[in-house]
């Protein structure tokens, strides 16, 4: 076991892919000479060459579409979109081509691309640079959406993403890069659609993904003082979604709170709650609740920004309301 940062775990997964397959290349804005805006690909251009670590112009639709085309030609591109906010400029390519080419061609085409991007707020970057849009992509049949909350999951899920013959949105959180966790030394992968019980508990199921997982774990600690034993479920992938793990958990705890960073209205948490209502309604002692972000464009000013993102206290308060 080694302690790795989230960043280094992703680096390790990328290097493994680059070494094992000469048709893997990395493409994106400032991934090469600059080293990646979150330093994930620092030094790669020197190590693997400009032919494989490719700096692009600021043209998200153009270079994401280029990656999709190369994937359709059978290559294994890993395309980085600097942040998920900028992915909106490439949404036509992602949603209309990557997600649909296989279906519309009657199964003739596959699109083995990994699109890495960065989600989340909390950096005082205001409304255009603080969004968490992964839930939007999770509504698109044909895509897969991966949301690792820690280093070990990031590496295991990245290995699965690279091996997957489908378009994968691999969504990282900007405030997780420095976080450390134990990463097994032996080779392992984490299959998509396998949620993880991050903390076992008896009284309530807190269901989260990305950075809201460590936040929910902190909430669980706060709840210990109230005598509430919380279970925390990390979804790990939004599409495919492992419903069984959280349904089993709700059957055990009889209470559910779903946590996510994005706007609460119309969010992915609503889907999780619908699944709970459909599959575990009789087990519930109260309504399945959610804690999401404030339904506002994210403000710059720090005190205001802090009000928009679910905190451990907000999660704990919501859980307490069920008791």
């Amino acid at each position: 076991m080694a302690q790795l940062t989230y960043r280094d775990a992703i680096r390790a997964g990328l290097e493994e892919a680059l070494r094992s397959n000469p048709e893997v290349f990395i493409m994106g804005e400032d991934v090469g000479a600059y080293g990646g805006s979150y330093a994930v690909t620092k030094g790669f251009m020197e190590e693997y060459g400009e032919e494989r670590i490719i700096d692009t112009p600021i043209a998200e639709s153009g270079f994401v579409g280029t990656g999709i085309g190369a994937a359709i030609a059978g290559m294994s591109p890993i395309v980085e979109i600097m942040t998920i906010n900028f992915s909106l400029l490439a949404m036509d390519q992602i949603v209309h081509i990557a997600a649909k080419a296989r279906y519309m061609s009657g199964g003739q085409i596959s699109v083995p691309i990994v699109i890495r991007t960065v989600s989340g707020g909390g950096n005082m970057l205001a409304a255009t640079h603080s969004q968490s849009l992964e839930g939007w992509y999770a509504r698109v049949p044909g895509l897969k959406v991966v949301t690792p909350s820690n280093a070990a999951d990031a590496l295991g899920l990245l290995r699965s993403a690279v091996a997957d013959p489908n378009p994968v949105m691999f969504v990282e959180h900007s405030l997780l890069y420095g976080s450390r966790s134990e990463v097994p030394d032996e080779h392992y992968t984490i299959p998509f659609g396998s949620a993880r019980v991050a903390r076992s508990g008896a009284d309530v199921s807190i269901i989260a993904y990305l950075r809201r997982v460590p936040i929910s774990l902190q909430a669980a600690e706060l709840l210990e003082d109230d005598g509430i034993d919380a279970e925390v479920i990390d979804l790990r992938t939004l599409l495919p979604l492992d419903t069984q793990t959280f349904i089993d958990s709700v059957h055990k705890t009889n209470r559910a709170v779903v946590v996510e960073e994005t706007w609460e209205f119309g969010g992915f948490a609503g889907e999780v709650i619908a699944q709970i209502n459909e599959k575990a309604f009789d087990s519930l002692d109260g309504p399945a609740l959610r804690v999401g972000g404030a339904n506002v464009p994210t403000p710059y000013s720090r005190p205001l920004e802090l009000l928009t993102i679910p905190t451990p206290e907000m999660v704990a308060d919501k859980v307490r309301s069920l008791f």
Partner: peptide, 8 residues
């Protein structure tokens, strides 16, 4: 962009 990628 798809054509560019195939050519790439």
């Amino acid at each position: 962009p798809l054509a560019v990628g195939l050519a790439f």
